[in-house]
Computed example of a mutant assay.
Amino acid sequence: MSNMKKQRWSFTEEYRKEAAGLVIGTARSISAVTKELNIGEQTLGTWVKKERSCRGLDGEPTGALDESEREELKRLDKEVFELREDHRFLGKAAYFFASKQYRSNGSN
């Protein structure tokens, strides 16, 4: 057995509020957001509960989305998709140019 302690992460209050806002302000589940942010569900659940309380939203949201909310959600989903695609592309481009520069510096 290993004597290594599990590393405990520390998050700023601003980060906690923003992470909770991803659940509160969108139709995404805690589970979906925790996978994206790579944090525990129980941790985010605690942050969401605290942020809802601070915002005066102690209970779960009730009722269906109205038409304007559905349109806004659709627009935001599209924007998130496009931003993720841009991020993927930029990552590939950065890798390409970094490897090209490495080859031009005499390794080839």
Score class of each variant (00 low, 15 high):
2 S>L: 10
20 A>Y: 01
108 N>W: 02
50 K>M: 07
93 A>F: 02
23 V>K: 04
46 T>H: 05
78 K>S: 09
53 S>Y: 04
13 E>R: 03
85 E>W: 04
46 T>C: 03
101 Q>R: 10
27 A>L: 09
7 Q>P: 13
65 L>E: 03
71 E>Y: 04
64 A>N: 13
80 V>R: 13
23 V>A: 04
108 N>C: 02
39 I>N: 00
21 G>D: 15
14 E>K: 09
63 G>V: 09
45 G>R: 09
66 D>L: 11
1 M>D: 14
107 S>L: 12
48 V>Y: 01
105 N>G: 05
94 A>T: 10
74 K>L: 11
8 R>Y: 11
19 A>N: 07
102 Y>W: 11
39 I>V: 15
34 T>S: 01
37 L>M: 14
82 E>S: 06
94 A>G: 03
12 T>A: 05
89 F>A: 10
1 M>K: 06
30 I>K: 00
20 A>P: 01
37 L>T: 05
63 G>A: 11
40 G>P: 04
12 T>V: 07
40 G>Q: 03
38 N>F: 00
44 L>R: 07
36 E>G: 03
104 S>M: 12
13 E>C: 00
98 A>S: 13
90 L>I: 12
43 T>F: 03
44 L>F: 06
49 K>V: 06
44 L>E: 02
37 L>S: 03
44 L>T: 08
53 S>T: 14
44 L>A: 04
26 T>Y: 01
90 L>T: 10
30 I>S: 00
7 Q>S: 07
37 L>I: 11
98 A>T: 14
87 H>Y: 07
97 F>G: 07
64 A>P: 08
104 S>G: 04
94 A>P: 00
8 R>S: 07
24 I>H: 01
93 A>T: 10
11 F>I: 08
45 G>D: 07
27 A>K: 12
70 R>Y: 02
90 L>Y: 10
82 E>A: 11
35 K>S: 11
15 Y>G: 00
45 G>Q: 06
27 A>I: 11
3 N>Y: 06
102 Y>F: 13
97 F>I: 12
78 K>R: 14
89 F>H: 04
43 T>I: 06
108 N>D: 11
15 Y>Q: 14
73 L>R: 15
108 N>M: 02
48 V>W: 02
101 Q>D: 13
61 P>K: 14
82 E>F: 09
8 R>E: 04
68 S>C: 04
10 S>F: 03
5 K>M: 07
33 V>A: 00
28 R>G: 00
24 I>Y: 01
53 S>G: 05
23 V>S: 01
96 F>V: 14
8 R>Q: 15
1 M>R: 09
19 A>V: 09
59 G>P: 00
